[in-house]
Nucleic acid binder design. Structure first.
Lengths: 110, 110
DNA sequence: GCATTATATTGACATACATCGATGAAGACT
DNA sequence: AGTCTTCATCGATGTATGTCAATATAATGC
């Protein structure tokens, strides 16, 4: 898998490869998914448990149920979270393997 | 300095402290600064050199000079970059110490 | 002083986004 | 079948954002 380092290590010389526009687009979309305080809060809660029911999220944030649903859709479409339906309930969970590339893009050493 | 881990390590239990709204707001603002492909590209270029002249950026992206200036302002106000004026030229440089907290928020181990 | 060059700011416009109330879809329970 | 609960989608509305042309600012050189 290609490693996208938006911020390469300090070492790199002047011939560091330039990010192509497709990569920049994809990264921007994923950062945009985190560019809202409610979604940061949702991700924070998802990270604290194996999975979280939508009902817990609508209870935790002082926003309408459609609004929470809207934010979850954005996180889903960015590929950062995954949903599993069991009966009437929907359980969301964070996808660590989707977050990892963002860390790498910010210059994580590995 | 308080460490903000939006995504704590895998270990954490159900009583993981919840992100307060002020922290969520600040993180969202910084992620929003990275939520545009042009700005991702700018940051990428800034990371590849000690400092970059605005003129190089306006040449590199197929956008008007005011638009580049606008994006640089957003990165500046998010505290991710810094500008130094020398004569007629403005040189921008990335602030690694500002990017680091974002990496930590995404669950970097240290 | 005047022309030129490098950036920033302003104003306008079109598009994207966050939010809500209303409604829809599907499972659970009686 | 009918009702209740859970969640998603739709439609509307106000605000934020990306973009550019025009203009302002400020340094350089003649």
């Amino acid at each position: 898998m290609k490693t996208l380092q938006v911020i390469p290590a300090i070492c790199c010389g002047p011939d560091t490869p330039v990010l192509d526009s497709e990569d920049a687009e994809r990264l921007a979309t994923q950062f945009r998914a985190l560019a809202d305080p409610t979604r940061v809060g949702i991700v924070n809660r998802l990270a604290a448990a194996a999975e979280v029911c939508v009902c817990d999220l609508t209870a935790a944030f002082d926003l309408s149920q459609p609004t929470i649903s809207h934010h979850l859709r954005i996180l889903r479409e960015a590929g950062l979270v995954e949903v599993t339906k069991r009966g009437t309930w929907s359980y969301y969970r964070l996808l660590p393997e989707a977050v990892e590339p963002l860390r790498l893009a910010l210059g994580a050493s590995s």
